[in-house]
């Protein structure tokens, strides 16, 4: 089982307390009606889907109930860092990444 650090609880918590909530830092337009179809379709459907470090949202649903962001490696499942929503995405030095 993964241990995920919850930035609100300040400690590692078991994976089963969390739910995945999609890619992080996907910003909804303030006025969707003013968006072009292409831009709106990109917001709705297109995600980066990287092989490597991925910023994603998690929900500590069976814990403190808050959302958090995590930088997770999509090959190894290693979570490098978690942080609160609204904070900037930390840069991950790929050198410290695990070898798949």
């Amino acid at each position: 089982m993964l241990q995920i650090r919850c930035p609100w609880c300040g400690e590692d918590r078991p994976e089963i307390e969390f739910r995945y909530a999609g890619e992080a830092h996907v910003v909804r337009a303030r006025l969707p009606a003013d968006e072009s179809d292409a831009a709106w379709a990109e917001y709705l459907y297109l995600r980066t889907n990287p092989k490597g470090w991925h910023a994603e949202r998690w929900h500590h649903v069976h814990g403190c109930g808050r959302f958090l962001n995590a930088i997770r490696h999509t090959v190894t499942d290693r979570i490098a860092v978690t942080y609160k929503p609204g904070e900037p995405r930390p840069t991950i030095d790929d050198q410290q990444g695990p070898t798949p």
């Binding site: 609880c9 078991p14 089963i16 307390e17 069976h62 814990g63 403190c64 109930g65």
Partner: peptide, 9 residues
């Protein structure tokens, strides 16, 4: 704390 016990919150 809130957590899971078996299948129950």
């Amino acid at each position: 704390t809130r957590t899971l016990l078996g299948k129950s919150e």
